[in-house]
Simulated assay, not measured.
Amino acid sequence: MARLDFLSEYHNRTQRNYLQRVMEHDKAECTRVARQWGYEYWDGPRQFGYGGYHYDGRWLKLAQRLASHYGLKAGDRVLDVGCGKGFLLYELTQAVPGIEVVGLDISSYAKQHAKAEVQQAIMLGHAKALPFADNSFDLVFSNTTLHNLPLPELDQAIREIERVGKGAAKFICVESYRNDREKVNLLYWQLTCESFFTPEAWAWLYQQCGYQGDWDFIFFE
C-alpha cells in the first residue's frame, strides 16, 4: 500500500472561491440537487456540480500513469468504480489497446451521456455491492467517488473493491484534509461528500477493511 500522487495536478488546476460557494447560493438546496446525480450535477450551473463535464482529453495522462504503474497490457480487465461519463475508461483503451474496460456508476444520466466508445461497458450500480466475482479484474480503481458514501456503505465499498480485484492492483482517490483550513474549505466547497477524514483516518479505515491497494488524496488548500 502506498500513496501515489496521480491526481493533485488535475485538482490544482481549478481556482476556487470557497466563501462565494456558500454565500451566493443555498448550499443545502444545491447539495440536494447534486445528489440526484442528474443533468444539474453534470452539466447544469456550477453551483450544482461540474458546471458542464465534457470530454477534453485531460485524463489520458492519468490513464498512462495507471497503465505504466500497474503494468497493464492487452487482454487485462479494468474496473472503474464511479466512472461517471467514462472518459477515463476511454483513455485507458487508448493507452493500452486491447484492454477490456468496465465501468460502474449510480447515475443513469452519466451513462446516457457517456463517451460513445465505452457507453456499453458502463453499468448502473452501487459501489457497496459490485456485481462481479472475486478476483475478476487486473486493476480496480475509484477516482473521487467513495467519499460520497456514508461510513457503513463506505466500509462495504472498500471491501468490495478488495474482493473483485486481483492482488494489490487497486487504486482509490478521495477528498481529504490535513489541517483546519483545508477542512473548512472542503466543507464549503463539497456538494456530495459524506465521509470527511484525515489521511491518517483513511489509512486506518483501509486497514480495517483489509484493503491492500494504493491510494491518493485531493486537498482543498
Rank of each mutant, 00 (worst) to 15 (best):
P150E: 13
D134F: 00
D56N: 06
S108P: 09
W59Y: 15
R163M: 01
G165F: 02
P152L: 10
D105R: 05
R77P: 05
A133Y: 06
G165S: 15
P97V: 14
K73G: 06
G51N: 13
K115L: 01
H147R: 10
W59Q: 12
D134W: 00
R58Y: 14
A74Q: 15
F141Q: 10
R163N: 01
E40H: 14
D105P: 08
P45G: 09
F87P: 02
Q119P: 00
Y70H: 04
V101N: 09
N143I: 12
A169M: 01
L62N: 10
C83T: 12
L62I: 07
A129P: 03
D80C: 05
L60R: 10
Q112N: 15
D138P: 05
L139F: 08
R163V: 00
E160P: 00
Y41N: 09
C83A: 07
L104W: 07
L72G: 10
K85V: 01
W42N: 04
A67H: 04
Y90T: 00
A169V: 02
A116I: 02
K61T: 04
V96Q: 08
A110Q: 06
G103Q: 03
Q119T: 05
Q156T: 09
T145N: 14
P131C: 06
A157M: 14
Y50S: 10
G98F: 10
G71S: 03
L146R: 13
G103T: 03
F132L: 12
R65F: 02
R159M: 03
G71E: 03
E162P: 02
A114C: 00
Q112P: 09
H113T: 07
D56A: 03
V140K: 03
D76C: 14
V81R: 09
K115P: 00
R46N: 08
P131S: 07
A63G: 13
G75R: 13
K61Q: 11
Y70F: 15
A67M: 02
F48E: 06
V81I: 12
R77A: 09
Y70G: 03
W37G: 11
R163A: 01
F132H: 14
A157H: 13
Y39P: 08
H54E: 15
D76E: 12
W59R: 11
K61Y: 07
A168P: 05
V78P: 09
E100I: 11
L62K: 09
G98K: 14
V118G: 03
Q156F: 03
E153C: 10
I122E: 02
M123H: 12
W37Q: 13
F87C: 02
F137R: 04
T93H: 06
D134C: 02
G86I: 02
L92W: 08
K85P: 01
M123Y: 10
A133S: 14
H113L: 05
D80V: 04
A133T: 14
